[in-house]
Write a protein that binds this DNA or RNA. Structure first.
Length: 668
RNA sequence: GGGGGCGUGGUGAAGCCUGGAGUUCACGCCGGCCUGUCAAGCCGGAGAUCGCGAGUUCAAAUCUCGUCGUCCCCGCCA
């Protein structure tokens, strides 16, 4: 199924953020001569994405552009994309990049692009003969400043595809601020440029409308989160990024300490324990846009370095968390899609999600639900099915609908099922006469075949898929096939869903218990957790959007005794727990308020809302699947002197391998 | 750790299955022409160790093996 999803959303979507959004709320008008200060005007359009980070504190002088060396007005008095017919007659100076140049031998057109959009500049040698040399040298992506007058375009040359298409700037003066080398790829959204190349020249990639729109969307999403939470009385608190390593869950990134040789910091996998201690610290309502690090393999929705909206509330349970979060999500969706979401979001128990959709993150935009068939085969002669039932397995199926697959296509489904962990997959196609065509049909009784059709609501032409395996495998396989066969392309429709009542523990392949959420999650019943850990339910919940897990949260354990009991069930001895989490558990002994919280994957939600198939598209400087940043050549080797200072020797085999490939990655 | 796709002038593709001279298309680049285009147009030109290394063969972009890179999936991601 589905190759790469289309990017049609970028140009097609209704409210999706694209570059033109910057023009929606234009108000300020340029005064004649254009001397009105830019930062004033900025305030009007602020939040439209092209405010160049004015006033970020950090020691720089205060107000607007005033503290900078260059008076911007000498380079620019107007934003390209904001000009309109109301500016006709005004003398303006615009600055930006040469998006395209169209040279007619005499008259030359330059599409000048800045963060606000594009405006056409016309250079006419009859009007300005002295500009010839400059204009001849102009090339794509030169950074230039243009002085000229805004004028209406001549009859018949209006461009309705351009927001500024009614006007143009007649240039009287052009300054090349910076020339540009020939580009490694073209700055537009048409070509599918190699990922590696895009990342190597990310600064150019970011000039593409699609990426600029994604940056803008991200900024707006963060702003929506912050303002919603601030209005709701949340305190934004930062937590450390050099923390104690807790070898559990994902692999930690380690940072060697120079002052304490042989000791290591870890980068945080999340601010989990710190935010709980903030609850102990009386913060009551905390949030943070937190960078998190997990040294695990990449996926299209996973980078080793990612960003979460982390929040926590004291005297809260699940309902307060969900109620606090829904307006935040709604504000983000409003900001990026212009949509008013219906709240509250629907809820579904973890058990229901697994039974109906075969996954804990159901995409409820479409049906094709799993149907239990064990009953139909309670007395079957077909060994693959009877064997599974006897072993306590589950037989279930989905109705894939009219797939019209060839034999090769059906075999492909079998292979896919095997990749998902099944021993096999039974497919059946409903023929015109209502009979079931299937390699195993001859092993099944009429009653069984009839039962299958009835249970799966089979109609002529439908493809039915049946798996008989252990319950988790059956569900995982059918759930996976369901996604392959039925999931809509892209994310025009949005279906949020809370999945609640997660189990406390998962049983690993080796039969070991691990925390399903994390070990600080409150079980619904502590005694039950100890007596039947495999079945125990916790107060944990996930937020799911269109089949993607956006984030998860839980009510926390606020009592050190319960915390200790959970560790015991997990097989963590008291001594070990004290060693690793003693600092945290001690904190719980000083009047810890009951508390609960959540963390939302920001990269994921923005990627989905922007209809992007990969979170790389909404991360300014992401890494490749093997953890490389091709722009900087990170990670790279370090000097022996640096290692010596840290008291670190590379293992001989590692050192040898490094020398083997010497030369390595070059930066300037 | 495993499975799969891809790697061809600066970019994107076709060529590969069925071996026969680096062949083709679009964009870009360089030069020329061109005064209303907007992905401008027309003419000309330059630009390639076909990712790298072995092997098979008279002959390899093409077949085989290995390797590197990249992307997707399984595992992993409390």
């Amino acid at each position: 199924m589905g190759g790469r999803s289309s990017r049609s959303g970028v140009e097609g979507g209704l409210g999706r953020i694209d570059r033109q959004v910057g023009q929606v709320s234009v108000q300020g008008r340029q005064s004649v001569g254009g001397r009105r200060r830019l930062h004033r005007r900025r305030r009007v359009v602020g939040g439209n994405g092209f405010d160049e980070g004015v006033g970020h504190g950090g020691g720089e002088q205060g107000t607007g552009r005033g503290g900078r060396g260059v008076d911007e007005a000498t380079l620019r008095t107007a934003h390209a994309g904001l000009l309109s017919s109301e500016d006709i007659g005004n003398q303006v100076r615009v600055a930006g990049w040469v998006a395209t140049r169209r040279d007619h031998g005499g008259v030359l057109f330059v599409d000048l692009r800045d963060a606000s959009g594009i405006v056409q500049v016309v250079i006419n040698p009859e009007e300005q003969p002295d500009l010839d040399d400059v204009t001849h040298a102009l090339r794509d992506e030169f950074c230039i400043s243009v002085l000229g007058s805004v004028r209406a375009r001549p009859e018949g040359t209006i461009n309705p595809d351009l927001a500024t298409g009614e006007i143009e700037i007649g240039a009287s003066e052009i300054t090349v601020l910076s020339p540009a080398d020939p580009l490694p790829f073209q700055i537009d959204d048409r070509a599918d440029v190699d990922e590696m190349r895009r990342l190597e020249f990310r600064y150019l990639d970011l000039r593409r409308p699609r990426m600029a729109a994604n940056l803008l969307a991200r900024s707006r999403a963060l702003q929506a989160m912050r303002s919603t939470l601030a209005d709701d009385g949340f305190l934004e608190v930062e937590t450390p990024t050099l923390v104690k390593s807790t070898p559990e869950g994902a692999r930690d990134f380690l940072v060697p300490s120079r002052l304490r040789r042989g000791s290591f910091y870890a980068l945080p996998q999340s601010p989990q324990l710190f935010k709980q201690l903030l609850m102990v610290g009386g913060v009551e309502r905390y949030y943070q846009i937190a960078r998190c690090y997990r040294d695990e393999d990449f996926r299209s929705d996973r980078q080793v370095e990612f960003t979460q909206l982390d929040l926590e509330g004291a005297f809260w349970g699940q309902d307060q968390v969900l109620a606090a979060l829904e307006p935040v999500i709604a504000a983000v969706v409003k900001a990026l899609r212009g949509l008013d979401l219906e709240t509250p979001f629907p809820r579904m128990s973890h058990a229901d999600a697994l039974a109906r959709y075969g996954t804990d993150k159901p995409d409820i935009r479409f049906g094709m639900e799993l149907v239990e068939l064990s009953e139909v085969f309670s007395a079957t002669e077909f060994k693959a099915f009877s064997g599974a039932v006897e072993a306590g397995g589950l037989i279930a199926g989905i109705n894939g609908g009219g797939l019209g697959l060839s034999r090769a296509g059906l075999d492909g489904l079998v292979e896919r099922a095997q990749a998902l962990g099944a021993k096999g997959l039974v497919w059946m196609v409903v023929e015109d006469d209502g009979s079931l065509r299937s390699p195993v049909a001859k092993f099944l009784s009429d009653a069984e075949l009839g039962g299958i059709k009835e249970r799966l609501g089979a109609a002529v032409g439908d493809t039915l898929l049946i798996v008989a395996d252990s319950p988790p495998t059956t569900r995982a396989v059918l759930g996976g096939l369901r996604i392959d066969l039925g999931q809509p392309e892209g994310h025009d429709e949005l279906q949020f869903l809370w999945v609640t009542d997660f189990p406390v523990f998962e049983v690993t392949g080796e039969g070991r218990l691990v925390a399903a959420h994390h070990p600080f999650t409150a079980p619904v019943d502590v005694a039950e957790m100890e007596n039947h850990p495999e079945d125990a339910i916790s107060r944990a919940y996930d937020l799911v959007l269109n089949g993607t897990e956006l984030g998860s949260g839980s009510e926390r354990i606020h009592d050190p005794e319960t915390q200790a009991r959970v560790f015991r069930v997990l097989g963590i001895s008291d001594t070990e727990a004290k060693e690793r989490f003693g600092w945290f558990m001690r904190g719980l002994r000083y009047g810890t308020p009951p508390h609960a919280g959540f963390a939302v994957g920001i990269d994921r939600i923005i990627a989905i809302l922007q209809n992007e198939p990969n979170i790389r598209e909404v991360i300014p400087f992401p890494k490749t699947q093997t953890g490389l940043d091709p722009l900087t050549g990170t990670p790279g080797p370090v000097d022996d002197a640096q290692l010596a200072e840290l008291g670190i020797d590379l293992r001989p085999e590692v050192k040898a391998a490094l020398e083997e490939e010497a030369g390595g990655f070059e930066t300037e």
